[in-house]
Amino acid sequence: MDATAPQEPGPPILDLWHPVAILAELTAGETIRTRLLDRDIAVGLDGEGAPLAWLITGEAPGGAPESLPAIAAYEFAWTSLGTPPAEIFAIPECDEPDRRNLATFSVGVHVSAPRAVENFLDLGHFPYVHAGILGQVPRTEVADYRVEVDPETNELWALDCEFFQPQAAAASTDGQMSQYTYRVPHPYCVMLYKSCPTDESRFDVIALFCQALSADRVLFHTFMSVIDEVSSDEQIRAFQTLVSAQDKPILENQTPRLLPLEVGAEASVRSDRASVAYRRWLGDLGVGYGVIPAGLPDDGS
């Protein structure tokens, strides 16, 4: 799919908030340049520390750039090329006073945002791609789990997921079954809730916010909201850096880079139900950017 004509992000994607910068990397009075949905944009901060964003049209040099809406959320600056909702999806856990909210690791990956989200939703690759950390051969079985679309929010959830992890906690030697809940609140964002090692009644949140540079390239931003009084920021980031670095070469070797939505374009088994539901959900939302819509040929190149 390298040679396809550029895709146009339709309204469902244009009207969403998209992450474009880590807040901590912005300085008042300065701008950084980045890309979103095949457009050049600039991001900065106002005197109050609130993010600003502009579309760089590239027409008259020195001409006034077009201002874009911008908000701060979850340690990132977000913008939109269309008409975004008043608020971004909520992660209520982040407001708890004893939480540490961290932008953990960002890396460019030559793949579509939906392929990256699907990888994040996938348990079956743990023993192969994250061997010794999130899984270990031969403990490869994916137990059945549930997938639901919340009728009120239209968010996609995968519930009652569990997987054997060789080192789920620093103190464990034999490994244990870890429980997960996945939530997809946005076509290009996904998060998981994992029981917190220090407080069984609460959940750590790990999120992937994809900045779609183009239909087949993303900046893969990760975010964590954890209850952890012991680890340093660097230790928390190191874990996420390692895991993301293991996924990058896998994602870049998937072909096609765009996610095929046609049923049967790729073989699915029971453990792929989250992936299958995500593909359907994207189709139902009318997403046509970063995907091969159902009904179009997938020539495998």
């Binding site: 070469p249 998937q254 072909t255 790729e266």
Partner: peptide, 12 residues
């Protein structure tokens, strides 16, 4: 060169 499951290159 493509796994039928999720499109991974089999050459890897």
């Amino acid at each position: 060169d493509r796994c039928i499951h999720r499109g991974m290159r089999l050459s890897a």
